[in-house]
């Protein structure tokens, strides 16, 4: 039987993914930047669009002049919410997997026990 004790590391990993993705070093590969930089940039763009215009502009300005560490700090609120969404997705998938698996296990157990008793 699978329990949450087996599955909860998956939730933690899912939740850590946005934090790790934003922290990766940025590299150029075949003329395209990949790594943490584009992730942070895309996150700031999404946030700037979601916020009121004035605050959005201030955020973009701040990001443009920030160091890598400050960029990550500005990225953290987005990462936090993304982590929450990832965690809930992992939780829902985990619930389905555990419930289905345990339903089979329980029925197999009862059938075996019934057969043993008979």
């Amino acid at each position: 039987m699978i329990t949450w004790w087996h599955y909860f590391p998956m939730i933690i990993l899912a939740a850590l993914l946005p934090f790790i993705a934003g922290a990766l070093p940025t590299k150029e590969f075949k003329g395209v930047d990949i790594g943490g930089g584009p992730v942070r940039q895309e996150a700031i763009n999404i946030m700037a669009n979601a916020l009121p215009e004035k605050v959005g502009n201030e955020l973009v300005q701040e990001f443009m002049s920030a160091s890598k560490m400050d960029e990550y700090k500005l990225y953290l609120p987005f990462a936090l919410n993304a982590a929450l969404i990832m965690a809930w997705l992992a939780f829902i998938i985990g619930s389905v997997v555990i419930t289905t698996n345990n339903w089979f296990s329980t029925n197999r157990y009862y059938s075996t026990r019934k057969a043993a008793k008979e």
């Binding site: 909860f8 929450l84 809930w88």
Partner: peptide, 24 residues
């Protein structure tokens, strides 16, 4: 486990609320 998830969600909502109140 559902309780833990909801508790974490409540904390994230609280942080969002504080940040929004402070900067927006």
């Amino acid at each position: 486990m559902l309780s833990i998830m909801l508790f974490v969600t409540a904390i994230v909502f609280l942080i969002n609320t504080m940040l929004f109140c402070a900067y927006v």
